[in-house]
Every structure is written in C-alpha cells, then in structure tokens.
Design a protein around this nucleic acid. Structure first.
Lengths: 189, 189
DNA sequence: ACCTGAACACCGTTCAAGT
DNA sequence: ACCTGAACACCGTTCAAGT
C-alpha cells in the first residue's frame, strides 16, 4: 500500500474515531508509519489531505448510487434507497459527512473533488429522472428537482445533528420527513 | 459596556472579518482590551463564547421574524420575507450563519442557546401556520411543514456555499429554488 | 523521489499571583 | 470579583539535511 493511500486511510479512520480535530498531521503520520511532515510530500497541506478523503468518499457514494439505479426496484424505491445511502453515511461517519457536504473550505480545494461530487450528484439526478418519467415526481427541470430533494435531505440531517429535531414538535426523523416531502411533491391526481 | 458583552461583540466581529479560525482568544481579548485569558473569567471556554454569539444572533433572528409576522403583508409574502431574512444573514455573515445552523459542537453547548434557537423557530412556525390557514400550504402538521421548509432552505444555502449550485444544471439560486418548492407544495386546486 | 528532525510561530487552557 | 503573566502541551508548516 503506497504511502499516500495509507495517509488517506489514516485520516479517514481518525475522522471516524475522533472527529475532524483528531486529524492532526502528527496522528496521521504516526498511524501511517511515517513522520509528521511526510504528508507534505504527498499533499499540499492538511486541507488537501482532507479533500482527498472527501474525493474518495464521493467515489464510494457514486458507486452506491449506481448500484441502486441499476437495480430492479421501482423508481420510488430507488429514490428512497439513494436517500438512505446518504442518511446512513451521515449517521455512521458524521465527521466525513460534514467534510463532503458541509465544509466550504474543503469544497474549494480542487484536485478532482468537484468532479467527484458532480459525478455522485449526476447519479442521483438520473434516479430522480426515473421517478419523473414514472410520473411520481413533478415534471419540472430534472436537476432542479434533484437539487431540491438533495437540499431537503441535507438540511434535515443538519437539523437533526444539531439536536433540534424535536419529536414532540412533529419532526419525526430525516427519513420519514423526506417520505412526506416526496408525497407532497407527487403530482396531483 | 461590560467585558463579557465586549468579548461577544469582538468574537462576532472576528467571525465576520476572518471566519471561525480568526476567533482566537488572544485576538478576542486584544480587541476587548483585556488579556488573552480574561475570557475564561466570563466563559467556560472558547466554545462557550462562540455559543454566546450564536445565542445573541438567534435573538436577533427572532426579532426579525416577529417583525415580519406582525407586518400587514399577505401570508405568502411573510413566508418569503422570513426565508429572505435567513438567506441574507447567511450571505452577510457566513461564519456566524454556520455557527448557528451548521455546528453540532456549538449546538450542544447549552447556556440558553437551545431555547433561543427554539424561540426563533417558533416564530417561523407561526408564519408557516398563517400560510396553512390561508390554504397556500398543505394541511399537514404545522411544525413538520415548517421543519421541511427550513431544512430545504438550509440545504440550499449549504449547497450554494459549497459552490455546487451550477446554474447550467438548472440550480438557479436559493431564493428561486425555494419559491419553486413552495409552489410545488401548494395544495392542488 | 521520499523522508526525517529540529525549529518557528502560533494555539487553548491552566495556574499562581496580583488588585 | 476580575484580571494578568508565565507556563504547558499541543498544533500546521517550513527547511536544511539525509538516503
């Protein structure tokens, strides 16, 4: 395993175990068996290393979306599954989730990150399109609708992560709120 | 002006001028005319100081929402205005916006922050209710709908802040996407 | 080409001491 | 009660030097 892959894997593991603050170059280097400034031989700086983690994760999300899209499920089920992929990812890897979707500094890093993010979003768009073709979602510009659904999901995740989704107030979780939203959006019959 | 108010004001100004990284206790102390560890006499630590900034801003948002709600505008116009209040705030004070709505660490700080956030959300809920009473929004549980609208707005803001709202893909800005969403949600006629 | 050790200029936080 | 200066244990980053 090459050093740069080891560094990305170590940063990823540290994000999961201790959050973003735990990702010090000293800890990353130590976990990879190199010195604390060896990362500079592979990445411009700490942000570039984190961007590499994000790029890899966007790739994994793209693969997951592709699997969902190519499955034999009904369009609505595919959409629910795709949303569930991201929701589960946000629960299981909160620090990494925030890196991909909630960190303007990292988003501005370049190095293939933007392209990787667009590829993932492209797969999601395709799934939304299947729903529109099946007339379970309104006939508005495809990417606009996908953007709305994606934004709602991310907003709900952030809302819950901030501890402000009170069940007593009728806010009953990300997945169920999203299901309701999809119902409300479905064309009038 | 008391020292603790000065500290909050200085932290607020530093967030605007240099982002969260610029809010060092040394800079806050210097801008307030005290030493770099004087803040510890007023706040438990740096996060508690940032939480105080967030609490104050939630208070300002509550006031803005209240003004909108008590105006003579039509319900839909009130909703648009309330959303615009937050959108403008996110543009003019991005670091502070992220502190209030996108920072789980700060959200968990306590000290009146949670209550202040709920008060602001309560005002927003009341505006959404006016729209429901006027039948321009669907008749589902009030707080649930407000949560969906709020989540969509925050998700769109995050999407744009990450530089991933490409106009060429049909994603044409936070405000216009939200308007479309509200149209789609309006009960079938 | 890749890595290391020392060094620099910072941090947040603690603590003894001052008024 | 409120504040200060020194100190501690960290950081990211740079750089000269090694193989």
């Amino acid at each position: 395993m090459s050093t740069d892959r080891k560094l990305v894997a170590a940063a990823s593991a540290l994000l999961d175990s201790g959050g973003e603050d735990a990702v010090t170059l000293r800890a990353v280097g130590h976990a990879s068996g190199v010195s604390h400034n060896a990362p500079y031989k592979h990445f411009k700086n700490r942000d570039a290393l984190l961007a590499a983690v994000a790029t890899a994760d966007f790739g994994a999300l793209t693969d997951s979306f592709k699997n969902v899209r190519q499955s034999s499920a009904k369009p609505t089920a595919k959409l629910t599954s795709a949303l569930k992929v991201v929701i589960d990812y946000s629960y299981q890897h909160p620090a990494r989730y925030r890196l991909l979707f909630n960190n303007p500094n990292i988003a501005a890093q370049g190095g293939g990150l933007e392209e990787a993010a667009l590829r993932a979003f492209g797969e999601f768009i395709a799934i939304v399109k299947e729903c529109q073709d099946a007339s379970v979602l309104p006939n508005i510009p495809n990417a606009t609708l996908a953007g709305l659904l994606s934004a709602t999901m991310h907003g709900l995740i952030a809302h819950e992560a901030s501890g402000r989704m009170r069940p007593e107030k009728g806010l009953t979780g990300v997945a169920s709120s999203l299901e309701l939203m999809i119902q409300l959006l479905s064309p009038c019959k």
